[in-house]
């Protein structure tokens, strides 16, 4: 146990000294589920490199998987980090399981960029690249549905300053959360 802790600590020190680990892998967009997936696919559809972007979807999220399949982009799976209305303790365990899987996937892929728009799975994926000190660029887009307050994932990512760019879709949020960007509607 102590050995693992020691090597973990060493890894953190190495990361801090080396200003992070090079990340030259793919650009990855996380498909949150339901409305989040819909918004993400809308955002991706407006990009030149739309077909080169790879996806992460939840194992249980058949809607996102079938949509990703239809587009033909490469995609990876992660277990769901939290179910809607799930209790705190069981969701903590589930998130931890998701985090471990995300860490393994991120070590393997070393994405050069993550594009996320919530909910929990995307926050966990961002945690993973930051814990690994990967030099992944993180773009977080808050949902169109959020006019006055950030979502839970949005608040976490904002407060811990985990994103390189934090985009909101309503000017009300811009005033409330300095450092975010508003460029108009994105979906």
């Amino acid at each position: 146990m102590l050995k693992y802790f020691g090597s973990g600590l060493l890894l953190v020190v190495v990361c801090l000294l080396s200003k992070g680990i090079e990340a030259n892998g793919p650009i990855i967009a996380v498909l949150g589920s339901g409305g989040h997936t819909g918004e993400m696919l809308e955002i991706i559809s407006k990009l030149d490199l739309g077909s080169k972007i790879q996806f992460i979807a939840n194992t249980s999220d058949e809607m996102s998987i079938s949509k990703a399949n239809k587009l033909g982009n490469k995609f990876y799976m992660l277990p769901r980090a939290r179910n809607v209305g799930q209790g705190l303790i069981s969701s903590a365990f589930q998130s931890l399981f998701c985090l471990i899987k995300a860490l393994i996937l991120m070590i393997r892929l070393k994405p050069r960029m993550l594009i996320c728009n919530g909910p929990a799975t995307s926050a966990v994926t961002i945690f993973a690249v930051r814990l690994l000190c990967l030099r992944t660029k993180v773009i977080y887009v808050e949902s169109f549905a959020r006019v006055n307050t950030l979502s839970l994932s949005g608040k976490l990512v904002y407060k811990l300053n985990l994103a390189d760019r934090f985009l909101v879709q309503w000017p009300e949020l811009l005033e409330k959360y300095p450092g975010t960007e508003y460029r108009g509607l994105l979906v």
Binding site: L47, M113, I139, L185, L186
Partner: peptide, 16 residues
């Protein structure tokens, strides 16, 4: 009508 959506291509480009 609601204004059309804007692309985040330039955000991605500048980050890359």
């Amino acid at each position: 009508p609601l204004s059309p959506a804007v692309s985040i291509q330039d955000v991605i480009n500048s980050e890359l």
